[in-house]
């Protein structure tokens, strides 16, 4: 076992990796969010699902209160640029921009770069596999835990 792997195992053993799955904005398409929440749970994550119609402020508050390792945002209303920008600003403002953010939904390719520039770690389009999403979230969560470990 490599040293990185052993650190990861050690990290996970303390408490399960924790993800916030959030519906940002006012769209009601919650099929994807629910499927992802469940898949993450089945993959061993602790999952907090916010339900629909969340503001950036509410998402940031939930992420901090629940002390999550990753924030997963689902948006199918086309308003991703606007809402995610606000979310990233809020995270920064409150000093929680160490929590990695991933976004999924009906997102045009041209919007992927702008989202990443805002600090979004990964963007998932319709048709993304659960496996890819779970692996990405796991990697980001472990990276965050490792950074915390180095800091303490």
């Amino acid at each position: 076992m490599s040293s990185l792997q052993s650190i990861s195992e050690e990290i996970k053993a303390k408490r399960p990796l924790k993800v916030l799955v959030a519906k940002l904005g006012i769209d009601g398409h919650d099929r994807g969010a629910k499927v992802i929440a469940r898949a993450l749970k089945d993959a061993g994550f602790e999952v907090v699902y916010t339900g629909i119609r969340q503001t950036p402020e509410q998402v940031v508050m939930s992420a901090i209160q629940e002390d999550v390792d990753v924030i997963g945002i689902s948006i199918l209303s086309g308003a991703h640029i606007h809402h995610v920008k606000k979310l990233m600003e809020k995270l920064k403002e409150i000093g929680a921009d160490d929590i990695p953010v991933v976004v999924g939904g009906t997102i045009p390719l041209v919007d992927i770069e702008p989202l990443k520039k805002m600090g979004v770690k990964e963007v998932f389009l319709p048709g993304s596999s659960l496996k890819t999403i779970i692996e990405t979230v796991r990697r980001l969560a472990i990276e965050k835990r490792e950074k915390e470990k180095l800091l303490t």
Binding site: G25, I26, R53, S77, G78, A79, I81, H82, H83
Partner: peptide, 22 residues
Amino acid sequence: DYPTLIGIDPDDPMAEGEVGIV
């Protein structure tokens, strides 16, 4: 659009960034 679907005006804070998209 979403603001119309849930019955809020375009200048409602919840409508920000959502007007006319879907």
